[in-house]
Nucleic acid binder design. Structure first.
Lengths: 192, 192
DNA sequence: GAGATATATGATCGATTGATCAATTTCAAG
DNA sequence: CTTGAAATTGATCAATCGATCATATATCTC
């Protein structure tokens, strides 16, 4: 019927992702995308509709990768601790200082359409749900007191992640980032 | 000798500030500045050199206002508590969802020149110094144990502020922001 | 192989970007 | 009042923005 696509969609999304991730949406020009992917305008627009469409697919691509960092082999406080420490490590080691595309996107709110904003808010909710889930497990298993304020602890942990990501993007040094993570895990200290 | 300026520099900076604050640097067009200030291109460029020069003066203008929010009538933990709670209140009530221009600027690092980045990093340091100063006072006055890890506590508090500002910009609801503030002040709870 | 159809290409679109400029206006010094 | 210097104005600059297009090319179905 027709000619086949010569480039790999996922590879292109991955290359475009790095640009949006590092530069942000508004500061990224389509010419940056052409340079990063090696594609020409026509191919990009045929495959991704427009800049916003490209970003949304990039965002979903990122969200999938990001979701894979959530631990599945632990439960309760161990899962929370492991993930916070992993993210702190990644943020402290990230030489690109790109932060987290989800946090970057909700923070660059003005530059995005309502539809894109909603996508990003959805992913933020997903992060919060992860914390709630494991906090509930911890409270039920006796790791945390039964009267633990789950909402407060979940919001505080979301705040910690946002902070770690933003500090990473801002170029804060590793010690600062690890201190933030360490302090955030203090309320769970000494509990198995 | 010459014609006098017809507009007030500080007023213009204040009007331009709101635009950069809300939209970010990259997403702000000079035409947005003309609209916000009522000035024409020639006047803006004559007074502020270029977009970067304008932003730097806007940034200094903001930094002055921001510094004035730091409490001077309290010391030690009371000062820290008061300021964190004030910032949480401001972030939760901010209908513009603009966040904090200092945090926004370090987070939008890629869009700024090294000189502008350095200015923003300097202000971040200033915030940290505020925490260090009052933590030292608290430790010396017995509000905190003498062996308190000042660096860790200061970094954690900086992280809290970054988190509150970013969540505010992201449009998080008031409860989330207040939860972050509340959890951050927990290590100091019960201490006079 | 022929025809149909999707993709690749790169020139090019109008709009907007940051910035400049000549012309005009205004004010202070002499 | 004259004169020089600074400020205002609005047109306009080249460059870049996101996006489109006609054309050429490649692939699948028949």
């Amino acid at each position: 019927m027709a000619r086949t696509r010569e480039f790999d969609l996922t590879t292109a999304l991955d290359q475009a992702m790095r640009v949006f991730w590092r530069k942000g949406y508004a500061a990224t020009a389509m010419s940056d995308i052409y340079a990063a992917t090696g594609l020409k305008p026509g191919s990009v627009y045929a495959a991704f509709r427009d800049k916003e469409g490209l970003f949304q697919q990039v965002f979903e691509h990122y969200a999938g990768i990001f979701r894979a960092t959530l631990p599945t082999d632990r439960q309760g406080l161990a899962a929370i601790r492991a993930w916070i420490e992993l993210q702190a490590k990644l943020a402290a080691e990230d030489s690109d200082r790109a932060g987290c595309l989800i946090v970057n996107t909700v923070a660059e709110r003005e530059a995005h359409s309502p539809a894109t904003q909603a996508m990003a808010q959805g992913r933020m909710r997903e992060i919060r749900d992860f914390f709630v889930r494991h906090l509930v497990i911890a409270a039920q298993s006796g790791e945390l007191p039964p009267d633990t304020d789950i909402d407060l602890r979940a919001d505080a942990l979301v705040g910690t992640v946002v902070s770690i990501m933003t500090l990473g993007r801002a170029g804060a040094d590793a010690a600062t980032i690890h201190h933030v993570a360490e302090a955030a895990l203090e309320p769970f200290r000494g509990k198995k």
